[in-house]
């Protein structure tokens, strides 16, 4: 199985259209395409935040639940639900690692841009597996820099956002998913053209720390440097960044 997945690795086109990852229409379309929702599906979007993925799935499924730890996030999501007059979306406060749902409930499970915050990834995947019906699919999208760039970015990520626990490489993702019982259909590394300062701004990183963290990226050496390709364009730092787009099945 891993061999099939590895066959999909390799050179990937940089996505020069990267802008605001969490809400960009391209990013959402990508998740929906990967999820291949069916009109009869009961779907769960975990760590939904303000509900971007759940709301994007809503027109394509029978019903979707968005789960998040944070009420403020879900209140925002609920406002959008009302504005768009969506009747098939509902919100639940809960933890991705302790899902409040019965076994074998959902036809589709999605999680995006969240697993790098989870301390217990094995348990998180075990829970995803548990609530999925056999023969159904889960979609995992998260940051996933390759080694050794991951080690360079790890220090930057931790200081930019203390709730960052760890990014997994695509290979690590596949191993973790297979360990949890999933069959990985596809695991696609997506290389992005990354605007460093914009990235810092989303977490309101103070200027002196922005400079320090830029120095870490710009002083990367060897293979990590070849992967990151840091460069200044009109004074702004740009470098490569990576996401993994993974579709996996709970075997039937």
């Amino acid at each position: 199985m891993t061999e099939d997945v590895r066959a999909r690795f390799g050179p990937v086109a940089a996505n020069y259209a990267h802008a605001k990852f969490h809400s960009s229409p391209e990013g959402l379309r990508e998740v929906v395409e990967l999820a291949r929702p069916q009109l009869g599906d009961l779907a769960l979007d975990v760590a939904t935040g303000t509900g971007h993925v759940a709301l994007a799935l809503a027109p394509h499924v029978r019903r979707v639940y968005g789960l998040d730890l944070t009420r403020e996030m879900l209140d925002q999501a609920r406002r959008v639900t009302a504005e768009r007059d969506l009747m098939n979306v509902e919100w639940v406060i809960g933890d991705a690692v302790r899902l409040p749902f019965a076994d074998e409930t959902f036809d589709l499970y999605t999680v995006r841009a969240a697993p790098h915050h989870f301390l217990d990834v094995d348990h998180f995947l075990h829970e995803a597996y548990r609530v999925l019906r056999p023969g159904r699919h889960a979609v995992f999208v998260d940051c996933a820099p390759p080694m050794p760039a991951r080690d360079v970015l790890h220090e930057v990520e931790k200081r930019r956002d203390p709730s960052h626990v760890m990014s997994r490489t695509v290979e690590e993702w596949v191993e973790l998913l297979e360990h949890a019982g999933f069959v990985v259909d596809s695991a696609i590394p997506r290389e992005l053209d990354w605007d460093f300062e914009d990235w810092m701004r989303t977490m309101a990183v103070p200027a002196p720390m922005v400079a320090e963290l830029a120095e870490i990226v710009e002083s990367a050496e060897g293979e990590a440097r070849r992967q990151l390709r840091p460069e200044r364009r009109d004074g702004r730092l740009w470098h490569a960044y990576w996401h993994a787009l993974i579709r996996a099945e709970r075997p039937g």
């Binding site: 009420r71 639940v92 406060i93 809960g94």
Partner: peptide, 10 residues
């Protein structure tokens, strides 16, 4: 259930 949202945290 707070303000219409179930709070399913242990």
């Amino acid at each position: 259930i707070v303000d219409g949202i179930p709070v399913m945290l242990i």
